[in-house]
Design a protein around this nucleic acid. Sequence first.
DNA 1: TACAATATTTAGGTAAGACTAAAATCTTGT
DNA 2: ACAAGATTTTAGTCTTACCTAAATATTGTA
Lengths: 219, 219
Amino acid sequence: MNKPLTISIQDYLKNIYELTENGESATTNALAKKLNISAPSVTGMVQKLASSKPALVEYHKHQGVTLTQEGKKAALEVIRHHRLLEAWLVQTLGYSWDEVHEEAERLEHVISEDFERRIAAAMGHPVRDPHGEPIPTEDLKMPPDESTPLSSMRPGESGTIQRVDASDPTLLRYLEELGLVPGVKIQVIDYSPFDHNLTLKVGRKTTVLGLNITSKLFI
Amino acid sequence: MNKPLTISIQDYLKNIYELTENGESATTNALAKKLNISAPSVTGMVQKLASSKPALVEYHKHQGVTLTQEGKKAALEVIRHHRLLEAWLVQTLGYSWDEVHEEAERLEHVISEDFERRIAAAMGHPVRDPHGEPIPTEDLKMPPDESTPLSSMRPGESGTIQRVDASDPTLLRYLEELGLVPGVKIQVIDYSPFDHNLTLKVGRKTTVLGLNITSKLFI
DNA sequence: TACAATATTTAGGTAAGACTAAAATCTTGT
DNA sequence: ACAAGATTTTAGTCTTACCTAAATATTGTA
């Protein structure tokens, strides 16, 4: 039987997953920055995760980490908890999409599998969280996501916002004000090559967005 | 500004509250037993809680601890979380009264004040949890509880079950089967002085209960 | 290709919160 | 009044997960 993972380890695995989704390996520094922890601490934990049995990560000195099968399953479990909780805080307690992240961040580590099942069922097994992020299935597969970053689109192209990859409440409130939420149709009107600004049509309004934002919206 | 209390400290305070409700002080041993922790560990923590500023407990060697005002407030906060969560798990996720304790035990330490307010409001500010235990008010007063243990009642007396002081799922399921839940009227039919058994009428059924149970039901 | 800048790891510590073994202190029965 | 037994505390460790300072490895560029 596998021991339950500590909250700290769950956080490492979740963040490693997020850094390695694309297939690359997560560097010590990147993880340290993401977790708000010193780099040496990360090295230490990563060595521990690599030598635990079963190993949760694969680790080669100076080359970063990737998740093992075991590690990935654990990471997806945490992410499923997080996204289900976000959906559920919005749907049943009237949270807004900028308020859910912090609450879910703490709850995700302590809810039981029973609780997970109950909220999933109560919501009719949702497939996306309030930011449009796909929710891992009950058997811990991440649904494929075909969306592309808005930043890679060019004038003449258009589409529907699929997901918003952000948790900063200020940014989320700003996006909501602009109507840039999942499900909304947008049209790229203009592109300025030097600052990478995109001019969009959202509904009847026109907005200019910088790379900071366009790289976080997926179409 | 007061630092947030660790989960461990929250647990100590909650359990000290429960042991000292009557006014007596909580002994090291009693706390150790209740928390499932060794007695020396309890001594250590209690010393720490007594010398923290602000002090959370008052402690005199070999004489147990009581809560300070600060400590009591913190304990009631945790208990409010716990009981609101229990109520809410039952009301909105279909938990049964024997399933809620364990889940609430973990959630109580991580929910925000905002979350607390939201579930309280969603339920219309309930005054009792599913076991009939009073829920501390938002300003952290414990509502007075006038109930008396069933074990102190004698033939001819009768009343309504106010609360059930138990968290063991097996016991709770057993009580539910017998119809011994809050709100139910009972009548004491007989008392046997040697084993302290009470014979009750519950609805149209008659049941004999030992002290183990009658001391946990409050009328 | 060598070296400076950057990234990573090693070494050595700290704080929380638990433990066991042993010492000290309380309580109680006679 | 005091010894036996129970309770409590002291002393000394352990684990987890973090830290800083210093050493080492990697990489981009002159």
